[in-house]
């Protein structure tokens, strides 16, 4: 089992991979990748039961990246886990590569396509229902953004997960507070996601520092300690563009591509981080 220290190093590597692939592609969404880096690292390198040699095994844990624009960091995780060659990352969004702008199931390790926001949690409900009906013990994890929390379908999915008591389903909200055109508060305040999930019948857990590997690991470590009947929501407070000073908390860096100067500066900051 990987230690918190090792996971920190991996997440650093994934962020470097992400910067390289987006810089090479001259296209991609770096801010949301960095807010979810620690969560994806913890899931893919410690907590999820997956097998890179058998990516379709029937009882694997599922992961749905509902905020599909954060694909580059997921691709980095899959490549570093061995699902496909790390060299493929250099062909992100390239017509010759398999790494689409948003996840596609043709990429090894991707369980569900995504991109159009608000749809992933429903698909994760379907996966969790399958496990429940077929008595398979896998878990389904779904990472949603706080921008897409504004989509009505999220609420439909929340109701159905609670109705079917999908305690094998974990929805993680990457709550960085910033979306494409500004902050959640400016565009459409989402209020208290904790209270909203709870009122829909979910068991709610909060990670106060969603970019602190220790906090993230601690949350997942004890997630299933308490036997609950309800689906589980993790509200992870994160920072958009985390780890690169000029990208942090900035809507501009939702989808901006670094200039050469910015690329080297971002790389320097990522490499120097502990």
């Amino acid at each position: 089992m990987r230690t918190v220290r090792e996971l920190k190093d991996i997440s650093k590597q994934l962020k470097i991979d992400t910067l390289n692939s987006i810089y090479k592609a001259k296209s991609g969404h770096i801010g949301g990748c960095y807010s979810s880096a620690e969560i994806i690292t913890a899931l893919y390198f410690r907590f999820m039961n997956i097998d890179e040699d058998n990516p379709c095994k029937i009882d694997r844990d599922r992961f749905v990246l509902s905020k599909g624009h954060s694909a580059p960091i997921l691709y980095a995780a899959l490549a570093r886990r061995g699902f496909f060659p790390v060299e493929d990352l250099a062909k992100l969004r390239n017509v010759c590569g398999h790494l689409q702008g948003a996840p596609n199931i043709k990429t090894p390790g991707i369980d569900m396509s995504s991109g159009p926001l608000g749809q992933g949690l429903s698909a994760a409900v379907g996966m969790a229902l399958n496990a429940k009906f077929k008595k398979l013990c896998y878990k389904t994890y779904c990472l949603i953004g706080d921008g897409e929390f504004q989509e009505g379908q999220i609420w439909e999915a929340m109701m159905s997960a609670a109705k079917y008591k999908l305690s094998n389903l974990v929805c993680i909200l990457d709550h960085n507070g910033v979306q494409m055109s500004g902050s959640n508060e400016e565009l459409m305040p989402i209020g208290s996601p904790q209270e909203k999930f709870a009122s829909f019948g979910w068991h709610v857990v909060t990670i106060n520092k969603g970019n602190d590997m220790e906090d993230v690991v601690n949350c997942f470590e004890h997630l299933f300690d308490e036997k609950v009947d309800e689906p589980i929501a993790i509200i992870a407070k994160t920072t958009k563009g985390n780890g690169v000073s000029f990208m942090e908390n900035s809507a501009t860096w939702h989808g901006a591509v670094p200039s050469e100067e910015q690329y080297f500066e971002a790389m320097r900051q990522l490499k120097e981080a502990h």
Partner: peptide
């Protein structure tokens, strides 16, 4: 699986089930 009057959720839940 009865999702109530929620056609979008219905189709997406179906996609999740079909992925399995």
């Amino acid at each position: 699986i009865e999702v109530g009057i929620a056609e979008q959720n219905m189709v997406s839940v179906a996609a999740g089930l079909a992925s399995c």
